[in-house]
Design a protein around this nucleic acid. Structure first.
Lengths: 243, 243
DNA sequence: CTGTTGCCTTGATCTGAAACAAGGACCCGG
DNA sequence: CCGGGTCCTTGTTTCAGATCAAGGCAACAG
C-alpha cells in the first residue's frame, strides 16, 4: 500500500504538512487549491498529510474503498483498470497538479501506481467532503476541474477511436505536451515517465506497434527518441499526423 | 437552430413552462432537479423554458457559444464531434434525464441532434450559473452528475479500447440497457433510436461491421433484430461476449 | 404503379495491426 | 567481468475489420 508515513520527509513530522504550508505550495496554483481564501487554505492545510511514493509503488487499488483523495505535487502516476478477462487498460496518467478522487466514488475505479518518485497531498475523503460541502468556492473549483477532466476524457475517446497507430501515437504525444504546457512545463524534450507497454495499453495498441511507430517517426525525423522521452522535432507534421 | 418557441405545446404559452410546473415534472427525480427544495424548484422553474425538436433537428452545434444548458425530458439526442479531416465521432447519446452542459464550457464541444421527437428544459447559461453558485445543493448535485458522467466516459473508453467488433457491440448494447434501466425503462426490447452509422461512428467501426456483427448475434440467437431496436435474448451470453 | 431515397445487408478483396518469435541494449549486483 | 533482469526493437506470419461494390427493402412522392 501507499507509504503514508513521511519517508524521506520524515523531518517534517509529526504533522507531515507540505513544507512551509499550503500558502507556499509550489503547485497550489495548478491544483484545486488555487483560488482558495487564506482562511480556507489554513483549513485545508489542517486536513492535508504529505505522502511519498517511489516508482512502482501503489497509491490505491481498483475496487478498494476510497478513504482519501489526493493532489499530486510531484512525479507522475499510472491510472489503470483491470478487465475481468485479465487485460489491462491504462485510463490515463496523473501529472503534477492533478486531483485524484474527483468523482467522489465510494470505491476506486482505477489503480494508481507511481511511475517515478511521487509526492502527493493526502486528504481524508470524509473530511474533504465535509469541507467541500461547507465551502462552495472549493466545490465550484472541483466542479470546474471535473469539467476539464470530462473534456480530457472526450479527447481521449476521440484518440482511441482514431484509425491508425500513427494517428494515435502522434495525438498522444501532442496531448501530453499540451498537459505539460498547461502546468508550465514547456521543454523541447517531452518526458515520457511511462513505458512502451503503458502507452500501448493506453492507446489500445500492442507494445510492438508503439515501438515500431515511434521508431518510424524517429526515422522520418518527426521526433527524436531520447532516454526517458522524445524530442519533438517537427510539431506541425505531428499535428498533421494526429489530425 | 433549436425550436425554442413552444411548438406543439403552444397552449402552455406565454410562459412555456413544463405542464404543471417542475413540481410535477415526470423526469425530475431522474435529473439534476431531484433533491431540490420546493423553493429552489420554484426558482429554477422561473428560469426554465420548454423546447421541442423533431427528429434530425439540431439543438446546438459544435464550437458555437454556449447560451443555454438543457435537461432532456423526452426523446434521445446524438452528441457528435466533427474532426478536422471530416470524419465524425459520436461521443454519446443523451437520454431522458440527461443534462447537457455540465462542463459549463464557453463553447459547445459537441453537436446535439435529435434522433426522435425530443423535449428539453432550457435554462439560460448565465442565469443557471448564477443559481448554481447561490445554491450549493444544486452545485453538489451537478458535481455528482459530473462524477457519473466521468464514470460513463471511462466505460466508453474501455469500450473503444476493446479488441473485437463483437465485444464492442455487445458492450454497447449492455451499456445502453444499463442506462435505460437507471431511468426506469426495463423492457425486454432495447430501443435503438440511433442508426447503424451512428453506432459505427460511436464504436470506431464501419457501418458494415456493425451490421454484420448484429446479424451474426441475431443468427446465433443472442439478440433478435426488430424494427427500431433489438430484443436481448441471451443476456448472460452477451455479457460474456462484452467482457 | 414506378421511380427515388435512405437505410441496411451481403459478398469479395485488401490492408494494417496483432501475434509469435527472437535478438539487442542497458542496468544492477555480485 | 559476468549473469540475470527488464525494457525495447526488429522480422515474419496471420487474421479481423476496412474498403470497395452491389443489391435488398420499406417509405414516400409523383
Amino acid at each position: 500500500m501507499s507509504s503514508e508515513t513521511c519517508g524521506p520527509e520524515r523531518h517534517t513530522c509529526p504533522h507531515a504538512r507540505t513544507e512551509g504550508g499550503c500558502a507556499h505550495c509550489q503547485v497550489r496554483l495548478l491544483s484545486v487549491c488555487a483560488a482558495l481564501t487564506p482562511e480556507e487554505l489554513n483549513e485545508i492545510e489542517s486536513l492535508s498529510r504529505h505522502a511519498v511514493l517511489d516508482a512502482r509503488q501503489t497509491l490505491f487499488s481498483q475496487d478498494e474503498e476510497t478513504t482519501a483523495v489526493y493532489n499530486v505535487t510531484a512525479g507522475a502516476l499510472r491510472l489503470s483498470r483491470l478487465l475481468p478477462d485479465g487485460r489491462r487498460h491504462v485510463m490515463g496518467f496523473a501529472l503534477v497538479g492533478d486531483f485524484l478522487g474527483l468523482a467522489l466514488a465510494e470505491r476506486q475505479t482505477v489503480t494508481a501506481e507511481a511511475l517515478s518518485h511521487v509526492t502527493v497531498c493526502r486528504f481524508d475523503r470524509r473530511a474533504f467532503h465535509n469541507l467541500m460541502v461547507r465551502k462552495p468556492h472549493l466545490l465550484q473549483r472541483l466542479h470546474e476541474r471535473a469539467g476539464y477532466e470530462l473534456g480530457l476524457a472526450q479527447e481521449l475517446m476521440l484518440l482511441l477511436a482514431r484509425r491508425g497507430a500513427e494517428e494515435k501515437v502522434a495525438s498522444f504525444l501532442l496531448a501530453l505536451r499540451g498537459r505539460y504546457a498547461r502546468i508550465g512545463l514547456t521543454s523541447v524534450t517531452l518526458e515520457l515517465p511511462m513505458g512502451r507497454q503503458d502507452i500501448a495499453d493506453h492507446l489500445g495498441l500492442t507494445i510492438e506497434t508503439v515501438s515500431r511507430t515511434l521508431t518510424r517517426l524517429d526515422r522520418e525525423k518527426v521526433i527524436l527518441i531520447v532516454p526517458g522521452g522524445v524530442r519533438l522535432l517537427d510539431i506541425p507534421r505531428l499535428e498533421r499526423l494526429g489530425g
